[in-house]
């Protein structure tokens, strides 16, 4: 028996075939290679996100050279505070080893960032001072060793 398709249907079928082929070809070139590898996203993007260089070196990198400072800190309430909390990002310093590549904090405002009194800070969590009445005009480090601030110079 001869298979019979009306001409308007067969023309439509050809048009559909052309459109679907064009769509598949365009899709092949437009969809990135790794799209759908793990889910509805470009799989290679995971590597892109893992790429950026670090600026904070991490505490272990500091301890590799400065264990002596850590030993000072360990004796009091500043233990557990990482070097980069106050000294800022240290990766450049880790690479070069030069003192100019690390931030050396100074000034009342810097210490006050944590230690200025504020009703929102718990008394058990942090030692607080009233920055406007406590030795105004003087630098905190004139009396306090920055790595052992609980000890006051006589």
């Amino acid at each position: 028996m001869k298979f019979y398709l009306p001409p308007q249907i067969s023309r439509l079928a050809i048009a559909f075939a052309v459109f679907i082929t064009l769509f598949l070809v365009a899709r092949h070139f437009l969809v990135p290679e790794t799209f759908g590898q793990y889910g509805h996203y470009r799989g290679a993007s995971l590597d892109d996100n893992a790429m950026p260089v670090i600026h904070f070196s991490g505490q272990q990198a500091c301890l590799d050279c400065h264990q002596d400072i850590e030993d000072l800190k360990l004796q009091g309430p500043h233990k557990g505070i990482h070097c980069e909390t106050c000294h800022g990002p240290g990766q450049a310093h880790v690479v070069s080893g030069e003192a100019k590549d690390i931030f050396k904090p100074s000034g009342r405002e810097f210490c006050g960032n944590c230690h200025s009194s504020n009703a929102a800070k718990k008394k058990e969590t942090i030692h607080q001072v009233n920055m406007s009445t406590k030795n105004p005009g003087k630098n905190c480090t004139e009396c306090h060793n920055p790595h052992q601030p609980w000890k006051v110079k006589k």
């Binding site: 996100n49 893992a50 790429m51 950026p52 260089v53 670090i54 600026h55 904070f56 991490g58 505490q59 505070i81 990482h82 980069e84 909390t85 944590c114």
Partner: peptide, 17 residues
């Protein structure tokens, strides 16, 4: 994510005193 992949803590966790 770039730090997690290097077994480092995210920056904000690193510096929280």
């Amino acid at each position: 994510y770039h730090r997690l992949k290097k077994n480092l803590a995210p920056a904000c966790f690193e510096v929280c005193p």
